[in-house]
Design a binder for these strands. Structure first.
Lengths: 207, 207
DNA sequence: GAGTATGTTGAATCGAGATTCAAATACGCG
DNA sequence: CGCGTATTTGAATCTCGATTCAACATACTC
């Protein structure tokens, strides 16, 4: 029998297993057995902890978005220079490639959000938080005189998040002419226009 | 018994029924019986015309995208002035509200595109065609001297399509602060920045 | 208007996945 | 150690949608 675990530990495992299963099989195409397998358990054990699968899936999506957002904050955390911070943040919002787990999860959610209010609200919240994150960077840069904003920070922030989203979808769908690097360059292009700053790309390999 | 129809007519009906069923139930959550009901038939009749459901769904998605694209072309068709043409085109790429059928279908497809190469390729093609459509408008405007492009037309076109996509998702997900009108205004804002043209909004009610 | 081809139904069957639950197992604690 | 409880299994059952197909209905042909 599989190693027995405490309730809290097992539930955390299951949330993570569900997250990975959704990425592989889709937000609505995922099956109980697939989640169980990911967690190294049988379906009965999953039901024991989550009698209603929807609860588990909601927690999984929530956790996935939280992880995505936290990672962005962390990557840009130590950077003081607004320009470099903006570049790093933009990079962290785009997938590293078509298999990028974080972005795939968000894409899966997008379609379902129109029919499922809970998912819609999760994505809406994430969007707003990301906009605020960008606003903080933009305003700091403007205050220091390094950015000359071509509009209010909310609008620019929204557009940055929107572009990330849309190009993320393109990369995940394996668009032939928009790979991960091109996507970064496209968003950076808009950021240059909106901040009046050249935003020189990092040296390759710098992450 | 339901009115009997020719093979071609019935298949066209089914493609349309499938399109509507997907919009209501999701690209992957849709069931044979739902499609049959939409078409006013029984499941057996659907299988008679489409032994493999995936073929029907692929045709439905294809038809939905074609319809979306054609509608855009048609709405902007008679307009000569590049600025008005650009405004109309932007409007036609955004949903009229959270229930907008055309955009909902595209959103449904987005998530599945990462796992289903056929869907990915459909969306990629649509994206490219929309970019070309914008490029034509932008280049015409630039040639006439009414637009001063802030970059190459391909980049601007890509960003316009990307912004439409992303804000379309927001509207469909019922974002509290981004409704259909706000979305139009956000994309128009970028278009102004990119073309150097004021792009005065149409008088309300003008469509 | 009989004959034939084609489209449609509805009931039977199939099968995959969800759900239940008694039994088995592992762990904590005295 | 051994008791009691929480966790997990695995097989049985349930459910629902897909699939099959013989019978029926409609339209076309001559």
């Amino acid at each position: 029998m599989t190693q027995r675990k405490s309730r809290a530990d097992r539930r955390a495992d299951l949330v993570d297993a569900a997250r990975r299963a959704v990425i592989r099989h889709g937000a609505e195409g995922v099956h109980l057995n697939q989640i169980a397998e990911m967690a190294g358990l049988t379906s009965g054990a999953v039901l024991y902890h989550y009698p209603d699968l929807r609860d588990l899936l909601t927690e999984a999506h929530h956790a996935g978005m939280e992880r995505f957002y936290e990672q962005r904050i962390r990557k840009a955390g130590g950077i003081a220079d607004p320009a470099r911070k903006l570049i790093t943040t933009i990079r962290s919002g785009l997938p590293e490639g078509p298999e990028d787990a974080g972005v795939r999860l968000l894409c899966e959610l997008g379609g379902a959000a129109g029919r499922n209010p809970v998912y819609g609200s999760l994505l809406t919240t994430l969007f707003d938080r990301q906009v605020s994150m960008y606003q903080a960077i933009l305003e700091t840069g403007a205050a220091q005189g390094v950015f000359t904003l071509a509009g209010d920070s909310e609008t620019i922030g929204r557009n940055l998040v929107a572009l990330e989203d849309a190009y993320g979808y393109r990369v995940i769908a394996r668009h032939h002419s928009i790979d991960a690097e091109t996507a970064v360059e496209l968003v950076l292009g808009y950021a240059r226009l909106a901040t009046g700053h050249p935003l020189a790309a990092d040296a390759p390999g710098t992450r």
